[in-house]
Each structure stands twice: as structure tokens, then as C-alpha cells.
């Protein structure tokens, strides 16, 4: 009871804290100075039509690098905590488990039809990140969803960890390498003007932004695929245990 009392006090104090914030939020009439500068100079400076992308990839590129690093560390933590070899030593081993059931014909064929389309859609999203809404993170998530579809539809699907770790580390390496190239050839770390800006609004424009965002997409896609593959309890694994 006394615990509940303290909880109520805490939540009420928090509400009291945010109440003035809520009252003071007035709709702005103008953009904040930084945002206005991005909006005025961004399209000519970087050549990207999507200003959110130019903020993420170039203006705040270092933050995105740090964010991808956090994602990598979290993925490594998931993989470390759910190691495969410990899965075999569950308490109460030897209890007969449900036998793995093959997916139905409809699910199998549907996943074979949808998987390439989903992969293509993911690649499309991160290649067009500088023109349309979307980008590396969304495209990576779509790729991870495509892999999830395969994992759900195929009983005996195993992730190839060699390919995943290769793609993941190579894209991370090239991300930093492009950043350092920007330091040498252009104005600073992760500057996208190491390549010609091209014609505004076409696919091959905005300098290195499509390349950087594709690398981010591959990295996010493989990392999230790895999280899903680690957290998934494979049926074959259960079968081996019995």
C-alpha cells in the first residue's frame, strides 16, 4: 500500500513537471534558425531533395554513425546473452516436444513469391532515400522483414552467419572510410561532396548520400536480421534436442 502511495506521488510529480511544458508549447510561426538555414542552403549545398535525409546523413552524420554503433552494440548484446550452445542444456531436457510441421503449400509458395519483391522494395527505399521519404533505416527494416518471412515460412531455414557478419562489418567499414574520404577530399567528416552533386532530383545526385545511406541500410538490415535470427527458437534445434 505504501508502495502504491509513493508510485502515485512519483507519477503526479512527473505530471506536474510536464504540465508547464504542455502549456507553453505554442505553435511556432517560423522555423528555428538552424532548421531555416538547412532548408535554405541544404538543397543547393548537398543536392538532396529530402531534407530529413540530408540532416541525418550529412549535417548530423556523426550522430548517425554513433547511433549505428549503439545498434551494433545492442545486437552484440542480444547475441551474447542468447548463445546457441546454452540452448541445448535447458532444464527438463528429454521431454517429447511437438514435432516440427512443414509450412503449408500456400505459405511456402507465397513466401517464395514475396521474398524477392520485399528485398527489392527495401533496396528501392534506401537507394531513393535522398529523393523520397524513407532511407537506410526503413529500407534495412524492410530487408529484415523479408528475412523474417523466410524464417517463419521455412522450418529448416538457417541464417548464414558468415555472410551476415561479412556484409555487416564491410558496410560499417566503408561507412567510416567514406567519412574519412570526406575529411580528405571535401570539407569534413562524412561530407557528401566527395562525388559530383549531379542534377537535383535524379537518382544519381546528392554526392555520396545514396552510397552512405545504402551502407546504413545494409548494416541495419543485417543487424536486425541477426537479432531476429538469434531470438527465434528454431524448430530444428528443438528436434535435435530430442
Amino acid at each position: 500500500m505504501i508502495k502504491k502511495f509513493f508510485t502515485i506521488i512519483t507519477v503526479l510529480l512527473f505530471a506536474l513537471m510536464v504540465l508547464p511544458l504542455l502549456r507553453q508549447i505554442a505553435p511556432f510561426e517560423e522555423l528555428a534558425p538552424v532548421a531555416a538555414a538547412y532548408a535554405e542552403q541544404g538543397p543547393d549545398q548537398l543536392g538532396a531533395a529530402n531534407l530529413v535525409t540530408s540532416v541525418i546523413v550529412t549535417y548530423r552524420g556523426l550522430d548517425t554513425l554513433g547511433e549505428v554503433t549503439v545498434l551494433f552494440i545492442a545486437t552484440a548484446g542480444v547475441g551474447f546473452l542468447l548463445r546457441r550452445d546454452e540452448e541445448d542444456q535447458l532444464p527438463g531436457d528429454g521431454v517429447p516436444r511437438e514435432t516440427p510441421r512443414e509450412a503449408s503449400e500456400l505459405l511456402g509458395s507465397g513466401s517464395m513469391l514475396l521474398f524477392p519483391l520485399l528485398m527489392l522494395f527495401g533496396v528501392y527505399i534506401f537507394l531513393h532515400g535522398h529523393l523520397t521519404p524513407g532511407g537506410g533505416f526503413q529500407g534495412g527494416v524492410v530487408i529484415a522483414s523479408a528475412m523474417l518471412l523466410l524464417m517463419l515460412a521455412r522450418v529448416s531455414f538457417h541464417l548464414n552467419h558468415l555472410i551476415i557478419s561479412l556484409v555487416e562489418s564491410l558496410s560499417g567499414f566503408f561507412y567510416v572510410a567514406i567519412g574519412v574520404l570526406g575529411l580528405i577530399l571535401a570539407a569534413g567528416f562524412l561530407d557528401n561532396r566527395i562525388l559530383p552533386l549531379g542534377e537535383f532530383g535524379t537518382l544519381l545526385s546528392a554526392g555520396a548520400i545514396p552510397i552512405i545511406y545504402s551502407l546504413v541500410g545494409l548494416k541495419v538490415g543485417t543487424e536486425l536480421t541477426n537479432v531476429l535470427g538469434t531470438m527465434r527458437l528454431t524448430r530444428t534445434q528443438q528436434e535435435e534436442d530430442v
Partner: peptide, 9 residues
């Protein structure tokens, strides 16, 4: 653009 778009940040 600065008078037509929302804040991208």
C-alpha cells in the same frame, strides 16, 4: 523552402 516546410530536425 524555409517558409513552406515543417522542421526537419
Amino acid at each position: 523552402a524555409a517558409s513552406q516546410i515543417v522542421d526537419p530536425i
